[in-house]
Design a protein around this nucleic acid. Structure first.
Lengths: 101, 101
DNA sequence: ACATAATATTATAGAAAATTAATATAGTCC
DNA sequence: GGACTATATTAATTTTCTATAATATTATGT
C-alpha cells in the first residue's frame, strides 16, 4: 500500500516479462496453442507441434515448474493442460489479435 | 489456401513468438507499458522506466525497426509511440489479466 | 522377468541476446 | 562558432538460451 504507483507498474512489468519469456519461443507457443484446445498427451503434443520427444518433454516440464501447466498420469500416458486461467485468457487474446482470418 | 490447418497454426506460432520475444524483456515491457498511456520522449521514457539513456535508445530503435513503434521529432526531442493497433490490444489485455487489483 | 512404448532427465556445444561503457550526432541557445 | 542538452551508435564482454544426443525411468503386456 505504501508503494508508489510508478514503481508498482515497473515491478509488474518485471513479473509479466518473465511469463512472456516462456511464451516467446516458437515451440513452447505451439504447445500452449495446442493445449488451448484441450488437454493432450506428450505424444500427441509431440506429433502435433512437430517437436522432438526430448524437447517436448523438457518444455512441458519447465512450464509445469513455472506453474503454467498441470499434468495427470493415466496409465503410461501423461496428460498436460493449462493450469492458469489468466494464461488461457491471454492466449485467447493473442489468438484473436494475431490469428484471425 | 492449400495449406493444412495444423501447419498454418504452427506458422502463426512462429511469427507471434517473434513478437512476444520483444515484449519478453522487463525494460522493453516497461517502455511499452509507458507508451500505452500515450507518446513520450526518450528522456521521459528513460526516467519513468529507470533505464539508462543508452539502453532506452537502443530498445526504442529496435522496436521501431521491428515495426512496433513510430517516432516523430519535435525540435531536439523525439517522441515515440506505439505504431500497431494490435499491439495496443495485446498490451491492454495483458494489463487486464495481470495488473488488475 | 523381458520387451516395448511413453515419458523424463542430463549434459554440453553452439548461438543468440543482454549489459555497459565509450563515443558520436543533432538540435538549441547565446 | 561554442556550450549544452537530447538522442543515437558502436563495440566488446558476459550471460542466458537453444538444440541435440544420449541415457534413464515408468508403465503395460506377454
Amino acid at each position: 500500500m505504501a508503494m508508489p504507483i510508478a514503481q508498482d507498474i515497473l515491478k509488474k512489468c518485471d513479473e509479466v516479462s518473465q511469463l512472456l519469456k516462456i511464451l516467446a519461443h516458437p515451440d513452447r507457443l505451439r504447445i500452449l496453442c495446442r493445449l488451448l484446445d484441450g488437454k493432450a498427451t506428450v505424444g500427441e503434443i509431440t506429433e502435433f507441434c512437430e517437436i522432438s520427444q526430448s524437447a517436448t518433454s523438457q518444455f512441458l516440464a519447465r512450464m509445469k515448474t513455472e506453474g503454467l501447466l498441470s499434468s495427470e498420469r493415466e496409465g503410461s500416458y501423461v496428460y498436460y493442460s493449462i493450469a492458469d486461467r489468466r494464461l488461457v485468457q491471454l492466449l485467447r487474446s493473442i489468438r484473436d489479435s494475431y490469428c484471425a482470418k
